[in-house]
């Protein structure tokens, strides 16, 4: 029964789609229920429905389109603005990043040699940082330094190294600047260097070095070295407080030094190597009558010889 109904439904839909043969239609009409469907459907096709007024609607559409067309033009204009805005943004981004300061930094037991835009050479000692601006370099050779660095400046306009302690300016020379804690040290190896600190302006000729502690000149005398000793993997001190020596040691070796019963203001004059910790400790402790102990976790203890 159900399958017959399904079959008839199928036929009905086929007829509604105009796909039946006359025989199939007769078959469909044999059932009074489906015959009435056919009659209803047939009669329905005869009805007329309102037609669209093609012209009036087209006119209405055209009228609506016109302002849109004008709007589209201003859209194109706004796209131009958008593109311009993006370019402006990119340009300002480019300008910002290129005018940003360049900085070079070294970690413990690491030195870095690099060139500045004018060809001047810089060797940066361990645990130091140099900041300069590539864009402005052409009209002002100026950089700031924290720590220690050796400069080989090509001849040209004034070359300035700014530190927290003072400013070093030159025209073209080789010199070393060390600005660590309160101690500011400048050694000149070629040419003439002028050092400004507090309100004083000091000229350091080739072969001389000066040391400023807490804004006071403590050393100003000829140096026997032709280039900074740290370039030869050594650290050299002249009448320096032990604390400063220990700090330098900690910068050159990955160690932690603790002083026990030792006067940290004790003065040290001498050199230690960056290659051998044992040797370096010996060179510091022997002349000062100190003992040292290296623990396996990288900690070093320095104590007075006669404390035991």
């Amino acid at each position: 029964m159900n399958t017959i109904k399904m079959e008839k439904d199928h036929l009905l839909h086929k007829w509604l789609n105009n796909e039946t043969t006359p025989e199939e239609l007769e078959q469909l009409k044999a059932d009074p229920e489906y015959a009435s469907y056919v009659q209803i459907a047939d009669a329905s096709s005869g009805f007329e429905v309102s037609e669209m007024n093609s012209e009036s609607n087209f006119e209405a559409i055209s009228n609506k389109i016109k302002p849109v067309r004008q709007l589209r033009k201003s859209n194109v204009f706004s796209i131009v603005w958008k593109v311009a805005a993006v370019f402006a943004f990119l340009l300002s981004g480019y300008y910002y990043t290129t005018t940003l300061d360049t900085s070079v930094k070294t970690e413990i037991a690491q030195t870095e040699t690099f060139s500045l835009p004018d060809g001047s050479e810089v060797v940066l000692n361990s645990g130091s940082e140099i900041t300069y601006n590539k864009k402005k370099w052409d009209h002002s050779r100026e950089l700031s330094l924290e720590g220690e660095a050796y400069f080989k400046v090509t001849k040209g306009s004034k070359f300035s190294v700014k530190t927290a302690e003072g400013t070093v300016s030159v025209l073209g020379t080789q010199f070393n600047v060390s600005a660590r804690d309160e101690i500011f040290e400048v050694a000149c190896y070629e040419g003439l260097v002028s050092v400004a600190f507090n309100d004083t302006l000091l000229k350091v000729p080739a072969g001389n070095k000066i040391q400023i502690e807490n804004g006071k000149l403590v050393i100003n005398k000829p140096s026997e070295n032709l280039s900074p000793v740290w370039l030869a993997d050594e650290s050299s001190f002249e009448n320096a407080p032990l604390l400063m020596v220990v700090k330098e040691l900690e910068r050159q070796y990955p160690i932690n030094v603790s002083l026990e019963n030792v006067d940290s203001t004790k003065r040290f004059t001498g050199t230690f190597s960056h290659q051998n910790l044992e040797l370096a400790l010996k060179s510091i402790c022997e002349p000062l009558q100190l003992n040292y102990k290296i623990n396996n976790n990288g900690a070093v203890t320095i104590e007075t010889k006669n404390s035991k």
């Binding site: 009669a43 005869g46 007329e48 429905v49």
Partner: peptide
């Protein structure tokens, strides 16, 4: 929907 009279008629 408002239908008009059949034309088949």
């Amino acid at each position: 929907v408002v239908l008009k009279h059949s034309k088949i008629q």
